[in-house]
Write a protein that binds this DNA or RNA. Structure first.
Lengths: 365, 365
DNA sequence: GAGCGTCATCAAACCGGTTTAATATCTAAG
DNA sequence: CTTAGATATTAAACCGGTTTGATGACGCTC
């Protein structure tokens, strides 16, 4: 296919007449500097001068170029990226999270390491972005997609009504949701069954004799938080146990302690509590201990994650362990195969592991 | 400067005579497919076929190309990267660490987040690699440098006699050491004074009345481990306190517990222990408690890092907090300015903060 | 020995911004 | 009115791999 090369011939200058708009490339291709130049009726060089803020451009031409850029939604392709192949051999991971909260989460580093072990043998690289809010997040994905820096992106920490599945579909970039499949199902997903861990915890506690079990869930609005909460309700119902309303927290130690006190302040406090992560569980143990309760004699505690510290505290924490490393590796392989062949087959992930330590025991009475 | 374009004219085939080797580009430029083609006396296309394992190349030509590639140390530039500018607007971070150990470290995610907050406003991206061993690490840097994927790299977790400063100098890529300046001083460095935190800890314990203080240091071979150990010795000497030989550990909870028992098994056990990180300190508290000691009444404990959990355990951990986020941001800005202007001026970093909580108290007697 | 098919080889075009060098236009001075 | 100088403008080359289309060499058959 022939594409118009710069401005059509004829004497420069003179009167500028309206021309039929040059044909845009069809389909999903992003606009180019040539498209902008054609639309603005200038040369590519002038467009380049404008976007690089170089002198030698008349205000009129500059404005036409700016308008054209705006109209086409164009932005310079980072370094005529991955020039011939159109493939950058690079995947993107955007984390939306307040930076100061990142270190509370054992998931992130493990998952990144897992991605890397999956990507390295395939010759792929990973570009990482950490953004503070939704607006920045959106911009990050748009930039990543438009300048062709990545062949595909991971979507983590999906929220209920998350705009990103629609966004990546609109941008036309390959994406993989890290977590359970979404309702719409537009974007492929790869995730372990969060619920099975919770069910294992409930069944463990029930077999110990617990009948009155509380739950401290994670930050509201996250898909996996809802999933775990639902699983908890389901597990209780299946076991024929009564339900204490789950207490909302946000994965931080402070919130975990607060939620624990809230549960223990009930007229009939639970004999066991399942937490949505280890950090809150450990804070919960400390909170319970400070009230004179002994763990596990007076209160059984189950965490989630199996952070390295879970084994180092007193009592060692009974918890749910996910093989995040393997998960990350599988996700990497799945996304690469998606961007290369278009085919996606959900890999088999190892099931969550239930690690029984010493923070759970039969209830007192 | 004119560069030889493909094979010089003349009829193809026929006798192959030795030609004077085509002039290589001078200086720091990496060799190109054209250089390889000229040296192998084939066209660029043939080289491309060879390196892409496509059919249609005679064994002889293939071998000559492979030899030429080998001789020049050439590898294909990833996508004619950052084509005109020669700048990828991307920085690289290579973490050499067993993937399963990554989540023990609060430094990594915080630092990455800090880099990102520094990089995002400048329009830079970060590519991340996690490698398991030194060989892979070296390869990672070489690839990153040769295919021009990054403009510069961060060097973290520097070891004594680390090969990387020499490596990046040899590869001719900009680099920034994250940590105290190195002896050679070839590569600029940006780091907080690890020692001051240790000195603060010792001075705090001394003012409480402790005279017999132990130290559990981190994994051997790391520059910052040595720095903290040296600082500890210096602080003891300055304070006129006797020195218990520091116990080597490796930053894991298990090692922290082991080292703690080792210190408490001494004929005259210390009344306070300073740990090289919080994880070991918390494991140490648990170990001491399991021996019937109370913290802080019978043993004072000081950690390092101020992980989110430090505040959630009993007793809350007295520890040294570094502003890793700010550090990462400053490192990002410094490395960008280095790659862009060549100038490096060490930014001012906030000093470490000493957080007094409840794991330290005056000694018993 | 002409005709055909196969295979190795390479010149040239291409990807999309950047930069150079040359041209066109305009103003001010002579 | 001519000319020098400044300014606006753009065609073309360039960066470095990839791919195409064409050419040439060779072996085989009739």
């Amino acid at each position: 296919m022939v594409r118009g090369q710069d401005k059509a011939g004829g004497s420069a200058g003179g009167s500028r007449q309206a021309m039929p708009p040059p044909s845009r490339r069809g389909g999903g291709g992003r606009p180019t500097i040539g498209d902008v130049a054609a639309l603005a009726q200038v040369s590519k060089a002038t467009v380049s001068f404008v976007i690089n803020d170089r002198p030698g451009v008349s205000p009129q031409a500059r404005q036409r170029v700016l308008d054209a850029i705006d109209q086409l939604g164009w932005q310079p392709n980072a370094g005529a990226r991955a020039l011939s192949t159109k493939r950058s051999q690079t995947l993107g991971l955007v984390m939306r999270r307040p930076p100061e909260l990142l270190s509370t989460d054992p998931f992130f580093p493990q998952f990144v390491a897992g991605i890397e072990t999956g990507l390295a043998p395939l010759g792929y690289a990973l570009v990482l972005q950490v953004v503070p809010d939704e607006e920045t997040e959106r911009q990050a994905y748009e930039r990543l997609a438009r300048d062709g820096r990545v062949d595909g992106v991971f979507l983590t920490d999906l929220r209920t009504d998350d705009p990103r599945p629609a966004l990546v579909t609109e941008l036309g970039i390959d994406a993989l949701i890290v977590g359970p499949p979404q309702h719409g199902g537009q974007v492929p997903a790869l995730g372990v069954d969060d619920g099975s861990g919770v069910r294992r915890a409930v069944s463990h506690l029930r077999s110990l004799g617990h009948r009155w079990i509380g739950h401290v869930c994670g930050a509201a609005g996250f898909v996996h938080t809802e999933a775990r909460c639902d699983a908890w309700r389901g597990a209780l119902a299946d076991a024929g146990l009564p339900e204490i309303p789950p207490v909302a927290a946000d994965f931080t130690g402070a919130a975990g302690a607060r939620a624990t006190h809230q549960l223990l302040d009930l007229d009939r406090p639970p004999t066991a509590i399942v937490y949505a992560n280890d950090l809150m569980a450990i804070a919960g143990i400390t909170a319970a201990t400070s009230r004179g309760l002994r763990v596990p004699e007076d209160l059984s505690v189950v965490g989630f994650d199996d952070i390295p510290l879970a084994d180092c505290i007193a009592p060692p924490l009974t918890t749910v362990r996910q093989d995040v490393l393997t998960w990350g590796r599988a996700a990497a392989q799945a996304l690469v195969s998606l961007t290369e062949g278009g085919e996606f087959q959900a890999a088999e992930l190892p099931p969550v592991e239930f690690v029984v330590r010493a923070s759970t025991a039969p209830p007192r009475s």
